[in-house]
Nucleic acid binder design. Structure first.
Lengths: 172, 172
DNA sequence: TTAGAAAGTCAACAAGGCTGCCATATCGGG
DNA sequence: CCCGATATGGCAGCCTTGTTGACTTTCTAA
């Protein structure tokens, strides 16, 4: 459907924000913003011969210490072979500790070591700094809208996962 | 700085949305939403033995026909060697037309063929469908906030580029 | 006219996705 | 106690898409 036709169909409604052109702007905004979003941690990681995959693993192990390989797999949405490669280097390098499960000895419970915690903090602080600046600049109402649209964009399963992620209520 | 300390520092201000926990939620929302954002085109691309890089090239050639390899490079933020490989397959497969520049014969001006236009439309319609649903669900005010935060997150140079991108004012 | 800059191409390498297949340890039900 | 299912790890090999380095063609300014 062309924009003009679409607009015709919306007469009397406040739906101009749904034109193809508006949607394309949103698509481009996602592309450019996501690139910026990963840029700061990527700089740190490159120095250490790690990649984004390592960052993601550290992030989710940090936020839910003791989670199993299978749970991490589900959150990250990659294959175990792919995760395993990343996890192995993190364990070898002493950033992640893999302990045999207490309930179920087949499981491996993942924790960050103190070195792992330090790197995670360094990475996430770099990422938070950018996010904080953007949030501050845009204001609380914009932030609410930002989160609302992102959530609406997720697949239902992912959204449930996202919403189930507990608050860390830290003093980390 | 810990959350509690940060919150202490905000007494009397409405800045709770800047806590580390809120920022982490935003970071996770970006991760999950971006994965969903690329999922639909990825399905189509996989069938055709193309990747996300091909999609991005098609997108920006579509939105600015005749642009040169160097300009496309600047928008995509990758090396020319990386782009070249993608571009070569698109040209070989007859989706993109590369014409020697008239002013400067070193330049290549890129256009979509009709086949390229068709694929671009198919890909972007898949992506727009998801975006449209998210926008409709969240409402115009949320969409405004979404765009505001994404723009604030970009690097200044990228933001300038993004804002300079012309409207397509279509009937494509 | 010639040196150097700029645009684009080719070659080779690495990260990190993927699939397929197999081994090991453990669990739980019959 | 045994047997099928589950959790994990490892190996091989493939693909896409980043990277750097070296090269050609073309343009421009000295």
């Amino acid at each position: 459907m062309q924009d003009k036709a679409r607009i015709q169909a919306m007469v009397g409604e406040d739906l101009l924000f749904l034109t193809d052109d508006q949607l394309r702007r949103g698509i481009e905004a996602m592309f450019f913003a996501y690139r910026a979003f990963t840029a700061d941690p990527d700089l740190i990681l490159a120095d250490l011969d790690y990649g984004r995959a390592h960052h993601r693993a550290l992030h989710f192990i940090h936020r839910d210490p003791g989670l199993t390989v299978t749970s991490l797999l589900a959150v990250l949405g990659v294959t175990k072979q792919s995760l395993n490669r990343v996890l192995r280097t993190l364990i070898e390098d002493g950033l992640v500790d893999s302990r045999i499960g207490r309930r179920d000895r087949r499981e491996r419970q993942l924790h960050l070591t103190s070195a792992g915690t330090a790197l995670e903090r360094r990475l996430s602080e770099a990422q938070r700094a950018r996010m904080r600046a953007a949030y501050r600049n845009a204001g609380p109402q914009a932030v609410a809208g930002f989160r609302q649209v992102l959530e609406a964009m997720m697949d239902p399963e992912t959204r449930a996962q996202y919403q189930a992620l507990k608050d860390l209520s830290d003093d980390r």
